[in-house]
Amino acid sequence: MSNETGISRRGLFMKIGILFNGVVATALAVPIVQYVASSISRSRANGYLSWVSLGRVGDFPEGETRLATFRNPFVTPTDGKTADTACWVRRIKDEQFQVFAVNCAHLGCPVRWFPQSGLFMCPCHGGAYYRDGSRASGPPERGLFEYPIKIEKGEITIHAGELPTPGSAEATPGRPGGTTAADKRSAALDSGCRGCGKPS
């Protein structure tokens, strides 16, 4: 009956059927994409970061750098040991601290502190950093990632919760490593702010 227009009744139904499937698929795609991207979108509300205590100020001797560990503030039930994180705490004096991520600013391998030579060394590609976290040698393009710190009720707390990576540090200042040790140093020289690193 619709031969003049070239569209049969069944052909039209087929097209409507395909369209119908397209609409349903689009509607389904929205929650699916949201589900897949949930690990990204959560961080927009700053949901991963919070202040974590590393222990009492008195636990860290002045002039020394010690390894501290903390439980990541964001955990899931299957994380096991992987939610435990290590960081290097340098107490300069009194309440002046620097807290560095163990992750090398090159590709994230764990750096080790050598108090005798006053260097952090990375076992992977040979990055080295001075005691204030600034770059000494090797492939890293910047100093160690530094956590923002706060002293509260005699405890040292850091703003942590995300794996520090070169990209995240550049993208969002205020995240761990958002400022380089060198930035901190110049800020400290300008204002003498509490808790900022100073060249040793």
Binding site: N72, T78, D79, L107, G161, L163, T165
Partner: peptide
């Protein structure tokens, strides 16, 4: 994650998508 994070603009999102969260974990 460190390599992925170097992608301009979306690096941070790529890392979180790859890790399924803010850190290497469950």
């Amino acid at each position: 994650a460190s390599i992925a994070s170097r992608v301009p603009v979306v690096g941070d999102a790529v890392v979180k998508l790859m890790l399924g969260g803010p850190i290497i974990a469950g």
